[in-house]
């Protein structure tokens, strides 16, 4: 299966989880990753810089109308919803908060599901609300692959648990195993 993009939703406990994730993903990991992390509306980009310094991949804030390219990691800017268009470019909006959040995981996931159909992987990591549950359902409806962090191993269990309670998730795994799975299913050549 040739997956074209990975969307990740993460909330409280996210910084730590993302640090681990990016330390494990190899430099040649080419499938683009798009992330919504719940953050304060007034955050600056310092945390992205810190994350970037420790990562093998290039991490940046998603820009309006930017084309999604291989080998990049994009993060939703604070106080904007991030959507993906059919032509694989980003749209930003300042629409009402969804699940008390802007950016909202559901907004990204639902638009990504429709843009990438069965070529999308959706992942829900640690978090203490239920944003992302609707989005994961939509990804599954459109034929994409769904993965949730094992709640028992998540710093905050509620968000992955909410998804698992609502649907039949394809994989429920600890973070390390999620990364191993991603490498395996997106880059089979890495194992040769």
């Amino acid at each position: 299966m040739h997956y074209e993009a990975i969307v990740i939703g993460v909330s409280s406990g996210g910084m730590k989880a993302m640090k681990i994730m990016f330390s494990l993903l190899p430099k040649n990991f080419s499938t683009p990753i798009i992330i919504v992390q719940h953050i304060s509306a007034h955050s600056d980009t310092q945390w992205i810089k810190l994350l970037n310094d420790e990562s093998n991949l290039s991490i940046k804030e998603a820009d309006e109308k930017e084309k999604i390219e291989k080998g990049n990691v994009y993060i939703a800017p604070p106080n904007y919803h991030l959507l993906i268009e059919k032509d694989k470019t980003f749209s930003l909006t300042i629409d009402e908060r969804v699940n008390y959040a802007r950016p909202s995981i559901d907004v990204l996931f639902e638009s990504a599901a429709e843009a990438y159909k069965n070529k999308l992987i959706g992942i829900i990591l640690t978090g203490s609300n239920n944003d992302g549950t609707k989005g994961m359902k939509r990804i599954q409806e459109c034929g994409g692959l769904t993965i949730a962090q094992d709640p028992a191993t998540a710093e905050s269990r509620y968000m992955p648990a909410s998804v698992i309670a609502a649907m039949q998730v394809d994989y429920v795994l600890p973070l390390n195993d999620i990364i191993a799975l991603l490498i395996e299913i997106t880059q089979p050549q890495a194992h040769k």
């Binding site: 959507l83 993906i84 268009e85 059919k86 909006t93 629409d95 639902e110 638009s111 429709e114 843009a115």
Partner: peptide, 9 residues
Amino acid sequence: YSEAHIKRR
């Protein structure tokens, strides 16, 4: 308008 946005609305 941006399609993904207008569709959502």
